[in-house]
Simulated scan of single mutants.
Amino acid sequence: MNSSHDLLAHQGHIARVHGIRIGQFTDPRRPTGCTAVLCAEGAVAGVDVRGAAPGTRETDLLHPSNLVQQVHAVMLAGGSAWGLDAATGAVRWLEQQGAGLDIGVGRIPLVPAAVLFDVMLGDMRIRPDADAGYSACESAGTARPAEGSVGAGAGAVVGKVFGHERAMKGGIGTASFTVNGVTVGAIIACNALGDVFNPFTGELLAGARSADGRQLLGTRNALLAGEEPRPVLAGSNTTIGVVATDAQITKAQAHRLAVVAHDGLARAINPVHTMSDGDSLFALGTGLSGQSLGMMTLCTMAAEAVAVATARAILLAQSVSVEGQAILPSHGDLQRQAGAPV
């Protein structure tokens, strides 16, 4: 797997993991939405928050030394801090299905969440709420999830180091790998401050554009050459996602899987994990394959799935035009403009 066409041809996706279902809601009123990763029967879980400006919910319970061993969903959402309310809709939906931690008098569904900042596109008063989260759960299934500018990636934007007007459209992508009957999959909503690359060839796919907007600038090289970045609002970026496996793993191993999964982000995004990003990755283990491959192989698969999913989020993104704002082009737009095959 080398070229962008190879990445687009990749057939794996996170819903191939036994016990995982994906549902999404995209708001028709402005570019925003949410993505529900459901594991209603319960899954051990871990998290690693690497960015310095995160927006999260229920992450403390995922520490390996804490009591609760399983969660029942993870919610990814746009809308910045307001988007965390989408997890409430997932809790409500799961309770109606009889899912959750048994407390004798009922069940409490446990739904960690992470959000990204997409409120610069259109009316910021429109953001994912509990009803949006509920709708995402209602649509959940095991088919390949939609990718590109949908769900939590609907309002994602990448390459903002030199100003939002020189940025490009981000999105959400998924990938998976299966080895000896065990699957590891990822779903990534990429709203990075930095540029996004093909993780295998190093080809720059999307990011900050030149002043005339016609071509990619190359943020890393521009910064190293002394070009001054524009002031960036803390938390106004973030790549969030979930890595899931049907291997049998412990809660401590789920935490390690989330840690190593960030290597996939580092292969596809530069700069990454900045002071203005809230990069957060969750890991889920359903155990439904009945076996494990060992952590060396699982971690390799996780980083690979994250890298591919991140690139696919960009390759499948669609340009967006909001009244009164400049059009943010996609990777495909710049390719067509340059006369290159898409």
Rank of each mutant, 00 (worst) to 15 (best):
residue 179 V to S: 03
residue 138 E to F: 06
residue 174 T to K: 00
residue 212 D to W: 03
residue 167 A to K: 02
residue 153 G to T: 12
residue 234 A to V: 14
residue 209 R to Y: 04
residue 189 A to I: 08
residue 164 H to F: 12
residue 229 P to S: 04
residue 191 N to R: 12
residue 140 A to L: 08
residue 231 P to I: 03
residue 162 F to V: 05
residue 216 L to C: 10
residue 212 D to A: 12
residue 171 G to L: 01
residue 207 G to R: 11
residue 159 G to W: 00
residue 151 G to Y: 03
residue 199 P to K: 01
residue 229 P to T: 02
residue 177 F to V: 15
residue 149 S to N: 03
residue 218 G to F: 10
residue 149 S to G: 09
residue 230 R to C: 13
residue 205 L to D: 09
residue 216 L to D: 00
residue 230 R to N: 05
residue 211 A to V: 13
residue 193 L to I: 08
residue 153 G to W: 09
residue 218 G to S: 07
residue 214 R to T: 15
residue 158 V to S: 05
residue 226 G to R: 09
residue 163 G to K: 05
residue 217 L to E: 08
residue 148 G to K: 00
residue 226 G to H: 03
residue 215 Q to N: 15
residue 176 S to H: 03
residue 202 G to V: 07
residue 219 T to Q: 10
residue 144 R to H: 13
residue 152 A to C: 07
residue 152 A to S: 04
residue 219 T to R: 06
residue 204 L to C: 01
residue 206 A to K: 08
residue 217 L to G: 03
residue 159 G to L: 08
residue 221 N to S: 14
residue 190 C to S: 12
residue 225 A to R: 15
residue 205 L to H: 06
residue 146 A to I: 11
residue 221 N to H: 14
residue 148 G to F: 10
residue 146 A to V: 05
residue 198 N to K: 01
residue 191 N to T: 02
residue 179 V to A: 09
residue 214 R to N: 11
residue 140 A to C: 08
residue 223 L to C: 00
residue 231 P to L: 04
residue 209 R to S: 04
residue 233 L to G: 10
residue 144 R to N: 13
residue 222 A to K: 07
residue 142 T to E: 05
residue 150 V to H: 06
residue 152 A to Y: 06
residue 139 S to E: 12
residue 187 I to L: 11
residue 219 T to I: 05
residue 218 G to R: 09
residue 234 A to C: 07
residue 158 V to N: 12
residue 232 V to N: 01
residue 201 T to E: 02
residue 187 I to E: 13
residue 196 V to H: 02
residue 227 E to I: 02
residue 192 A to N: 13
residue 194 G to L: 06
residue 156 A to L: 01
residue 172 I to L: 09
residue 229 P to L: 04
residue 190 C to G: 06
residue 231 P to Q: 11
residue 224 L to P: 03
residue 166 R to K: 13
residue 230 R to W: 11
residue 209 R to F: 04
residue 201 T to R: 10
residue 208 A to R: 07
residue 200 F to I: 09
residue 220 R to Y: 07
residue 176 S to T: 03
residue 147 E to H: 12
residue 150 V to Y: 01
residue 209 R to E: 00
residue 212 D to V: 10
residue 156 A to T: 13
residue 154 A to R: 01
residue 157 V to C: 03
residue 228 E to Q: 13
residue 141 G to S: 11
residue 159 G to P: 02
residue 225 A to G: 09
residue 220 R to T: 14
residue 140 A to Q: 00
residue 196 V to N: 04
residue 146 A to M: 09
residue 225 A to F: 09
